[in-house]
Design a protein around this nucleic acid. Structure first.
Length: 264
DNA sequence: ATCGGTACCTGCACGC
DNA sequence: TGCGTGCAGGTACCGA
């Protein structure tokens, strides 16, 4: 489900747990746990305070008092909810002195991991798209030989861009999703860098996109989906030239684009 | 070393 | 009503 703007919105909405002590941690579905015995993990968390909660791309990392990191990834349908009753898809329950935090995920593509060291898979990610300089972005772009849409989804290139914002950024930059990275000239790359920053910034301000069921920890939907110019708008007129938006499959993912505005 | 294809799982909309 | 199909914001792993 969530990409960078949605995860950022979730992290902001769970701010109340910062500084709070975990009274109990309960894991109901072991499928979503990575690396570690659930009882040991629960014991390791119990009685510890959350020192800080940070976002790295689409990953959420909570720093635990006394050492250790609790990593949470929401996958496609994961949710973190403050309060409320556990349901059919509640896989983890963190009880605090004041309130409870539930991890729900119907498709179970999300995961939770506890590690003593900073999680390796997070350390391996590329730079934050909102922080990377154009020079670094352009230098990394030319090192890859693939289709631009695939590269944007590659989290070692930049971290946090997913299917929605890749399509939206490519539209704004006028680049076809199937375009070879080798054929993108410097000035076009600059447009893409700017488009990624613009679309992510606007989406964060809107609280993310709620395509089907995304909500933040308070149950609020985002509303950036009303600003989508190509994503899931197949057949509808382009906002710039009225040409019908097309859909193609790239790397097993659907890509939406304007055949007139976006060139290969 | 990089890349593309596939697997993982549930729910929903659709056509018959 | 039910069934089959295709689709959905994700990453990890495997083999070329």
């Amino acid at each position: 489900m969530p990409e960078l703007p949605e995860v950022e919105t979730v992290v902001r909405s769970i701010a109340p747990v910062t500084g709070q002590r975990i009274v109990t941690a309960e894991f109901r579905n072991l499928r979503i746990l990575r690396g570690g015995d659930p009882d040991l993990m629960a014991a390791r968390l119990q009685g510890r305070r959350i020192v800080a909660v940070r976002r790295y791309g689409k990953f959420i990392v909570a720093e635990i008092e006394g050492g250790g990191y609790l990593m949470i990834h929401l996958g496609m349908t994961g949710r973190l909810l403050l309060g409320g009753a556990p349901g059919k898809h509640t896989h983890a329950i963190f009880t605090f002195e004041r309130g409870v935090l539930l991890f729900d995920d119907s498709r179970q593509f999300g995961c939770i991991e506890f590690s003593e060291e900073f999680p390796k898979r997070v350390a391996r990610l590329g730079p934050e798209p909102l922080e990377v300089s154009f020079e670094e972005f352009a230098a990394s772009l030319v090192k890859h030989k693939t289709r631009i849409k695939s590269l944007l989804l590659n989290q070692t290139f930049v971290r946090g861009v997913g299917n929605i914002y890749a399509d939206e950024a490519l539209f704004r930059a006028g680049i076809h999703p199937l375009a070879s990275t080798r054929r993108i000239k410097r000035e076009r790359a600059r447009k893409l860098h700017e488009a990624i920053i613009a679309v992510l910034t606007e989406a964060i301000a809107a609280g993310g996109s709620s395509i089907s069921d995304y909500v933040d920890a308070e149950g609020r939907k985002g509303f950036f989906q009303i600003s989508h110019r190509v994503y899931q708008r197949t057949g509808e007129p382009c906002t710039a030239c009225r040409t019908a938006i097309k859909r193609v499959t790239v790397t097993q993912r659907s890509s939406h684009f304007c055949p007139k505005c976006q060139k290969r």
